[in-house]
Write a protein that binds this DNA or RNA. Structure first.
Lengths: 233, 233
DNA sequence: AAATATTTGTACGTATGTATA
DNA sequence: TTATACATACGTACAAATATT
């Protein structure tokens, strides 16, 4: 029983040698032929193993020259940005959604800027996510109704906009901007924190192909929330 | 001239149909045989094309059942965390490093906790990164000298600890924690911001295999700095 | 409950193209 | 210029998992 695929074993072996420091950045790997012999497999199989490492940025290939251990890049970390509802429930807490405002309108200047659209109808939402009754995050969201007409019919008092969009709208690109801000009066009141206290602001722009779908800004009380990012292989 | 690889073309075509919404989440793709005929290529080639999409999480495969468009997962974003010096220079600004404190000592209670070590010598550094003369970030760093003895000999008044470690020490894992904090008095003074003003705190723990290498905490003035994370394919 | 057919998973060996030290 | 080493693709084969009959 070939419990583990040959290419996975080769990949793992190489990865181990890189991670352990045996093969440092810039080290030239043996040519694929050498692995063929070492593992008694075909070159395709070796190639596939290395393919995986190239995808992960651990190895760079240059024709004629060979395959090399890549120089460590700047730290890249994978930041999980789950929808707020899922995050709260994942902590075993009771999630409740409060819809503060829902407005359908023609895009005004700010809407156009944030959604990068010329014109068109937008849905503007403001809501407060609560965990075990306590304010958890304040969310401001713009949805381009031209891009997502179905959003008109959704009852966002029941379903959080993030969760609904995630489930119904595929995106091709998203960009996040994370800053620390001081709580303004409306934020302080909604989140029940002192005026001016530090808050974490996470803004997200989401595209599908070249159309902006939605803009969201979530504000968390700074002392009660942290974003965790893990090393990205 | 085969300008573009067949598998890349197939992959792109499928990706397009998913992204455009033509194939929604849960949609079953035609079997690999169908693509063989459509593109007049071998199954290996089709398989490789789909492999790429599986790696990116766009498609899930089940034997006998087929390949399916995956449900969109929670957002994962790639957070670039370059070393501060590189980041400042990348913005075309003049980088200067100020070493505030450098202490070599036996690990005290807090050191042991942050580095997850029983005991041993540590190097504690505090420094201020400046961009065009203005305070940019305050860094507090602990290095386990048992794991990185070479750090003893480095002149961290010349080279930023982040850059040196990145270049000299391979890591296998890192974890980041991002929060918003209020500037304490020492922070406010070093960064030249008002006491209590919001700051972005980025903490990082770095491992090699199972040994903790270093702990770092960087504090940025909240209104002058943002972390940018892009969608992770 | 068991047999069958379908579909993906892995790997082989071969061939030819391409960039480059 | 040439030999090397990666890049792509072919066709074949059998294994593994699982819907369907």
């Amino acid at each position: 029983m070939t419990r583990i695929a040959i290419h996975d074993r080769i990949r793992g072996d190489i990865e181990g040698r890189i991670m352990s420091g045996t093969w440092e950045a810039g080290h030239r790997l043996p040519p694929e032929h050498a692995f063929m012999e070492e593992y008694g497999c075909s070159r395709m199989t070796v190639h596939k193993a290395i393919d995986g490492l190239v995808d992960r940025g651990l190895i760079e290939r240059r024709k004629r020259a060979g395959s090399f251990v890549a120089a460590p890049k700047a730290h890249r970390a994978a930041l999980e940005i789950p929808d707020v509802a899922g995050e709260i429930r994942g902590q075993g807490k009771d999630y409740r959604l409060g819809l503060i405002a829902r407005v359908e309108r023609e895009a005004d200047g700010r809407d156009r800027e944030l959604l990068e659209i010329e014109s068109g109808p937008v849905l503007s939402l403001q809501c407060l996510h609560r965990a075990d009754g306590k304010p958890f995050a304040l969310e401001e969201r713009l949805i381009s109704l031209a891009a997502v007409p179905a959003a008109r019919a959704v009852d966002f008092a029941q379903e959080s906009p993030g969760a609904w969009l995630l489930a119904h709208v595929p995106w091709t690109d998203a960009r996040h901007r994370i800053t620390a801000i001081a709580a303004t009066r409306p934020i302080a009141e909604r989140l029940a924190v002192p005026l001016g206290s530090p808050c974490l602001s996470v803004e997200r722009w989401t595209w599908r192909s070249d159309a902006r779908i939605t803009y969201a800004r979530q504000v968390y009380p700074g002392d009660r929330h942290a974003l965790i990012a893990s090393f990205l292989a």
